[in-house]
Amino acid sequence: MIKAITTLGRLSLGAIAALGRITLFMGLSCLSLFRPPFYVREMGAALLNIGFLSLPVVGLTSLFTGAALALQIYAGGARFNAEDVVPQIVAIGMVRELGPVLVGLMIAARVTSSIAAEVATMKVTEQIDALVTLSTDPMRYLVAPRFLAGLLSGPALVAVADILGILGGLMVATQALGFNAATYLQNTADFLTFPDVVSSLAKGVVFGGIATVMGCYYGLNAGRGAQGVGAATKASVVAAAVLILAANFLLTAGFFSS
């Protein structure tokens, strides 16, 4: 019994310490954005990799999710004769919640893991040490470009996800559920408010930041050998996904509770 409590205490202390280190690292990452030199070429490569190359997976997931959402709401709404609300609910569901969350989870899977594996490999093969001895700060050379690319790509990907999600709903609604395309779009546009869109994009900024910084953090703190790389990659994806969902809750509460 005592043993169990000790273990529990040790685990929670460990978790709190890790959270502290991650917070500190996020602060340092933010600082690194403003300290020259700025590595423009690395920044370009990161934007391509994190933003542009994530488009297919983000687009497909949101298209299918929007389509499924329309079907569900139509079936659900039919129970109390409210089939007409499909465009409104799809719009609000995608823009406020599903668009950002899907983007967050998809880039945690695609981007966080690849950053963590890459940086961890650099760490275990002494490339990070080599960078330092060549007078290059890993925070500015490795972290800052990826972090900034995450902050910029996040909202862009969320915008794409929102639009394609609504489009997925539209396709199902017009092809299978007998809605008129023009009215559907009109209803969507009338219903969405400015704060809906702003909150959606703001979530994108935060999630993009979390996903990239978590990859860098676990990569730079990787243990030794191939096992170190594997452990770092796994931990980074788990941490990114959990933090993104937690941040999503806090942001939603902050934006819409008042």
């Binding site: 093969t125 490339q127 040490d129 080599a130 960078l131």
Partner: peptide
């Protein structure tokens, strides 16, 4: 300083 690392440590 210049340093040759044991494993080479080239940026791949």
């Amino acid at each position: 300083f210049g340093m040759l690392f044991q494993g080479g440590a080239l940026f791949d």
